[in-house]
Amino acid sequence: MAKMLEVQNLQKSFGDLPVLRDISFEVGQGEVIAVIGPSGSGKSTLLRCLTQLEHADGGSIAVCGDEMLTEKGYKDAKVLRTIRLKTGLVFQNFNLFPHMTVLRNITEAPVCVLKQDKAAAEQKAMELLRKMGLEAKAKSYPCELSGGQQQRVSIARALALSPEILFFDEPTSALDPELTGEILKVIKELAAEGMTMVIVTHEMSFARDVADRVIFMEGGVIVEQGEPSQLFGESASDRVKQFLARFSE
């Protein structure tokens, strides 16, 4: 199985506060990884380091076999940009462009960044919207959509660049429980298609049902990682059990 993501001894501090202490893990092609843990455990920072939104202080990161960060530091801007285009990120609060229609939100990057033909980009965008069940909303503006619909548009927007690996930063945290389901359904479909995904989430049922592997983080370190049956089962460490118990209450 090809390695889509390799992280070794990743470290990151904000000032004197260490947020990531020594993170190492790998993600294989088509794997779905759920990252769980209490607030402030460094989950989001980890994701932001992997997507280059934050610069890590040390360790190494390789995406699709391309080194991004090594012991010698970050690669040059051109390499980083190439790598960035292989990664997609779905934000907690969507971050759609409010002044563009749904369709243009999706086509803008393929047309302006990848220099794709506009008609072709629009065709692909419509396919993605169909997949998200939002075909009818192509001409709408983000403010006219529900949170769940906006999040599906932002997933379509990330997919339009055909990323090799897709990251989700608490994709359902800003949504009503009712709308959470529609996002989880989309992620499940993507998993079935073989999309490699790393998902920071508070949806434990989702981590259990969809993820191939679950990473439990706390205090900037990976406390435990393994198959859902392991972390959600009897063999899990006490800390993980304690954390999960609070969710099942």
């Binding site: 997507t51 280059q52 939104l53 934000f91 971050n95 990848l114 932002s154 990330a158």
Partner: peptide, 8 residues
């Protein structure tokens, strides 16, 4: 951040 992630 969204624009950066999309390669703009």
């Amino acid at each position: 951040e969204a624009a950066g992630m999309l390669g703009f």
